[in-house]
Amino acid sequence: MQNDGRRRARARAGLGIALLCVGGILSACASVGPAAWDHDLMARKSMQLNTHPDLMAALEHSYFSKEGASGGRSFVGGGCGCN
């Protein structure tokens, strides 16, 4: 029980640190990156984060069934930055 509580506390601390990191990264990112009209390469299909979602899903499932670790990816962001 005590162990459980400690683990939760650690998880909360981890989440807090992660949020701080995200905040830090965001402010560091504020001046990084190309102009809106220089997103031509980002607009390429080959530069998308998940070019073949069905394949990605099948591979992730296959790894999940054999390995102790799983997850970690996400597919938001990048792209042509339009609109």
């Binding site: 992660a18 995200v22 990084v32 190309p34 220089d38 997103h39 530069m47 997850g71």
Partner: peptide, 25 residues
Amino acid sequence: TSAVLGVTQVVNRYWLAQLNYTVGE
């Protein structure tokens, strides 16, 4: 129950980077 926090950054015209933190119980 799980959560993902992520930042995706177009670093320059050629480079896209992503950093995610995932926690799940």
